[in-house]
Design a protein around this nucleic acid. Structure first.
Length: 959
RNA sequence: GCCGGGAUGGAGGAAUCGGCAGACUCGGAUGCCUCAAAAGCAUCUGCCCGAGAGGGCGUGCGGGUUCAAGUCCCGCUCCCGGCACCA
């Protein structure tokens, strides 16, 4: 720790020291809290305040990605974004807007539960203690949050509405014709009234209760499905696709993950694939993040094509067809074989009793019958984790099923294989293989010696294998079937073949998504219980709204049953299932008291973060999750502006790390759209503008054994790093307890004060860029605040050093230039350059014998977003009674921004050889002749060939 | 492999529209103050040659466009992030 701020014996009594900063900061934090300075008035409800200075003003909703309150507390990296939004919000408030800025806690989740498992302490106890600690740490930073609006996802008052939203989703279906979700009751009414046919055409009245329920449940946006899920034995729970890393391990804990068929709650996010994709265009988000979402949704257009199966297998009727999805229907003439995913449902029915005559040995996997071969291959594929698949080279494996299909365009008999390079979960789980135009198919064809027919002419000189580029179609005609693609480019050929497929009943154009439905249940304790019970038939029944909340019951053992991380055959067991007295419940759901069984899964951690931004708007509302008028005011779409493009609504700024690019941001958009469709919110998107802050990173040091040593004690010398006399190795990365390189905001506040810490974090670089933490550099911001203080307050006497005499011309011009620049920087979230300008202005003042009030006051106001405490203190000392939180941010006088003279650098052949000062309104000819005179020696009598005068910028002479 | 982002002094960064590269800060050097130190303040600080005046070089590398390129174009290298057999 540095002693920079330790008050020495002969430090001037009124110097801005850490001790003084501490006193000022705590005093102002108390004042703000006591006076409710940062309460933002709602249009209606208990938080309305018509007398507020910003009531009815133009609104601005600034949002941070709320934290998970970890037991380790904050390090200096965590508040970077929070300080950024605070500076922005404080500026906007001074600029006249009604600013909503609040902070809550994403408090359900694994770490508290794991800690509870280890210690036996209830997760609520540890979580609430952690929240209290976070609140204290954040308060110490002087963040101007409306504390009345702080919520935590674990609050019963909060999660009752999470459950309520779940019910809305459960009780809704996606009407693809209308392109939106509608209440499930409307679907039932359509079935009942006959305006919508049932799947098998029977009338609604003919169906049994169970049949009706099945049909309805199959439409719901939240549904139970028995489907392949990511089972993680080491965590004892299943995970969403998004929670599994590329190498097949859990994002949390890094345990192996296995594909298992298990009954789980799913959310039909795929229904929203198109809208989640299209509406990205309406958002003011960083392009890379939009791109990541686009890739994740993975929309591809192509066609479904039906390949009739040659009836070799015992159970296949003559008319059976295998439907494939392809993005290249134009290449169908080159389809020389087919591949099904090993899990494909038709496989069993296809497999004949014996290998067809002439089957090559290489296709059989050495098995005597197709059935044995398929069994063996499936078993081998299922036993592999994704890690193992990854580790293996991409050598293609597979086995012949013994069956053949007919290529619908030319009647060719093509063999059907199963192979794990075809994924069960994508498209139809089956492909037509076109080796000539697909690299994977080419590889497989090489291994199994399958024919390769080019159907797109590769360009001259192409010496690769598969050719995936554009070119004229070849070998692609079936004149007797009225089909000829030859000579067409890829796009035209696609259009022609789709037309033909549709006309001849062989297929149709289609769109497929990489996005899968969202696995929504977790076999854990510390999460929101589902508002669902099961009746004696096992049907899932939603509890009525009046029965909310379903409170999380107390249990003795918080842990789900966990297993050896590699135990793929284990089965989940939830903590809640052990509370039989809670699980078994008697309820009257309209047809008299009956016995029901509660759902014992809980919701994933993402649930609360899918809608918390809405609860900030109306946190005390007990009638609705958010009042419609309050939602419309804070988040509703803005009137269509000059662009003519309708606004999507949502928060005006959302700041957080890029690690949530697809998880949280996609889920939250999905929920918001459901709520929009059902008429519960007026905004189409939750987060209009997104800003990804960078990370504060840190150096860590290891000794010869590779053990981390305390970074604080390492010294740099002679180009190396030393702990005492021992040389240590430097690494760069995260800040963390185990890396022994944590620096906390508490330490920084103690050594310099919160204002210095804030200024340092905002000045060290652009908010969106990651950068290394350097404690020794913090002193620069401290000196800056000391200089500001000294410009206003005499360090020896404490008296004001401010004069009412007007500022000199140069200082005044500097002030207005800075005001103009700082305003621009604040709007553009360029706080580092805004602070640099304030430092320049301050450094300009230190040369003066005393400080003109006309400069001191705007300087203090402009400093306020970054260093609010010291700014408030100076503002008061300058004679203002009220807080500056609502004071007008300075405005530049345009007249003072225009310079009277301009200094032109004069280049000769690209090099600056002189400069001339001319009146700002000098004519171009005057500038030219003055410039030529200034560089006459450099020209040495040569006649310039060309002279370029860039008005206000420079003169360039070509000699 | 594919997609995205980046590379500027010893360090973090600035240059917002193709117009003086290096604002501002740290670090370093020298000085003031001091018995001394700390703190604070002042001056200097891209690299090379030169006593100096001055000159040359310089934004990852190689080319190009332009009176003028950190910025635009073409071809690379390295670093960071995402996805990864998605038909």
């Amino acid at each position: 720790m540095t002693e920079a701020a330790a008050p020495g014996n002969d430090i001037p009594p009124f110097r801005y020291t850490a001790a003084l900063a501490d006193e000022i900061e705590r005093r102002w934090q108390d004042i703000w809290e006591r006076e409710g300075t940062f309460h933002a008035p709602n249009p209606t409800g208990p938080l309305a305040d018509p007398g507020h200075p910003r009531a009815g003003a133009e609104k601005l909703y600034v949002l941070d990605m709320f934290p998970y309150p970890s037991g380790a507390g904050l390090h200096v990296g965590h508040p970077l974004g929070y300080i950024g939004t605070d500076c922005f919000a404080r500026y906007q408030r001074m600029a006249g807007r009604n600013v909503l800025h609040a902070m809550g806690f994403d408090a359900f989740g694994l770490p508290a539960e794991q800690y509870a498992v280890q210690t036996g302490t209830h997760p609520r106890i540890t979580t609430e203690a952690n929240i209290a600690r976070y609140r204290a740490q954040l308060r110490r930073l002087g963040l101007a949050h409306d504390e009345r609006r702080s919520v935590a996802t674990i609050d019963v008052d909060f999660y009752r509405w999470t459950q309520w939203i779940f019910l809305q989703i459960f009780n809704a279906w996606y009407d693809t014709d209308a392109g939106r979700a509608r209440p499930i009751a409307e679907l039932i009414a359509e079935f009942q009234g006959g305006s919508r046919p049932t799947p098998d055409g029977r009338s609604w009245a003919e169906l049994s209760v169970a049949e009706r329920r099945k049909i309805v449940d199959d439409h719901r946006l939240a549904y139970v499905s028995e489907a392949p899920v990511n089972w993680c034995p080491g965590l004892g729970t299943v995970l969403a696709n998004e929670e599994v890393t590329a190498d097949g391990r859990s994002e949390r804990g890094n345990f192996p993950v296995f594909k298992r068929n298990l009954k789980q709650w799913m959310m039909r996010i795929t229904a929203y694939g198109d809208r989640l994709l299209e509406d990205l265009d309406k958002l003011d988000w960083p392009e890379p993040i939009k791109l990541m979402q686009r890739n994740w949704i993975g929309r591809s257009t192509g066609a479904h094509i039906g390949f009739p199966v040659s009836a070799t297998g015992p159970a296949v009727a003559g008319e059976a067809r295998i439907s494939v999805f392809t993005t290249r229907p134009d290449t169908v003439f080159g389809a020389t074989y087919m591949v099904l995913a090993p899990e494909h449902e038709l496989v069993d029915a296809l497999v004949p009793a014996a290998w067809p005559a002439g089957t090559r040995d290489a296709w059989t996997g050495g098995h005597a019958s197709p059935r044995a071969a398929v069994e063996a291959y499936r078993k081998a594929a299922a036993a592999k984790t994704d890690v193992e698949r990854q580790a293996e080279t991409r050598e293609k494996t597979g086995v012949f099923t013994g069956a053949y299909a007919t290529n619908p365009v030319n009647g060719a008999q093509i063999p059907i294989f199963i192979a794990d390079y075809v994924l069960a979960g994508y498209g139809t789980g089956a492909i037509m293989a076109v080796p000539a135009q697909d690299e994977r198919d080419w590889d497989f064809a090489e291994v199994f010696e399958l024919p390769i027919v080019r159907t797109v002419q590769p360009p001259e000189g192409f010496d690769g294998k598969a050719y995936t580029g554009d070119g004229p179609a070849i070998n692609s005609a079936a004149p007797d079937r009225g089909l000829d693609l030859n000579g067409l480019g890829v796009a035209e050929a696609k259009a022609r073949i789709i037309e033909w497929l549709e006309a001849n009943g062989h297929g149709a154009g289609a769109v497929t998504y990489r996005l899968r439905d969202w696995l929504f249940s977790r076999q854990r304790y510390w999460g929101e219980p589902f508002p669902i019970v099961y009746d004696e038939t096992g049907a899932a029944i939603a509890l009525p709204e009046e029965m909310l909340p379903v409170e999380l019951p107390e249990v003795d053992d918080f842990s789900p049953k966990t297993f050896e991380p590699d135990d793929a055959d284990s089965n989940p067991e939830t903590p809640l299932s052990r509370r039989r007295d809670w699980v078994e419940v008697e309820l009257d759901l309209g047809d008299g008291p009956k016995r029901y069984t509660r759902e014992t899964n809980v919701m994933p951690q993402w649930a609360g973060s899918c809608w918390y931004e809405l609860r900030y708007l109306d946190p005390t509302n007990s009638q609705r999750f958010v009042d419609a008028e309050n939602e419309r005011y804070w988040m509703g779409p803005r009137p269509t502006g000059d662009s003519g493009r309708p606004d999507c609504g949502g928060t005006d700024l959302y700041v957080g790390g890029a690690e949530h690019a697809v998880l949280h941001l996609l889920y939250a958009r999905f929920w918001h759209k459901v709520l929009y469709d059902l008429g519960h919110v007026s905004s189409v998107e939750p987060f209009r503008r997104l800003f990804n802050q960078g990370y504060i990173q840190a150096y860590a040091y290891t000794d010869a054994r590779g053990a981390y040593v305390s970074a604080e004690e390492v010294i740099e010398r002679d180009g190396g790093f030393y702990l005492g006399d021992t040389k240590v190795n430097r690494e760069y990365g995260k800040m963390g307890k185990s890396l022994k390189n944590v620096v906390t905001p508490d330490e920084m506040c103690a050594a310099y004060g919160a204002d210095t810490f804030r200024v340092y974090e905002m000045s060290m670089g652009p908010l969106e860029v990651s950068r290394p933490w350097e404690t020794r550099a913090v002193v620069g911001s401290y000196r800056f605040l000391q200089r500001v203080w000294r410009a206003v307050v005499d360090e020896e006497t404490g008296a004001l050093r401010v004069t009412d005499a007007p500022a000199d011309e140069a200082t005044r011009r500097l002030l207005h230039k800075v005001i103009d620049g700082v305003r621009g920087d604040m709007e553009g979230i360029r706080f580092n350059t805004a602070i640099a300008k304030l430092i320049e202005l301050t450094n300009g003042l230190t040369r003066l014998p005393d400080t003109p009030r006309e400069v001191a006051e705007p300087l203090v106001l402009m400093l306020a977003p970054f260093a609010p405490h010291v700014a408030e203190e100076l503002w008061r000392r300058l004679g203002h009674e009220a807080s500056l939180a609502y004071a007008d941010f300075p405005t530049a006088d345009p007249a003072l921004l225009v310079a009277t003279t301009v200094t032109y650098p004069v280049q000769v052949n690209g090099k600056v050889r002189g400069r001339v000062e001319v009146p700002a309104d000098a004519s171009e000819d005057d500038v030219r002749s003055a410039a030529l005179a200034a560089v006459a020696p450099a020209l040495a009598g040569r006649e310039p060939r060309k002279v370029i005068v860039v008005a206000g910028r420079m003169v360039s002479v070509v000699a």
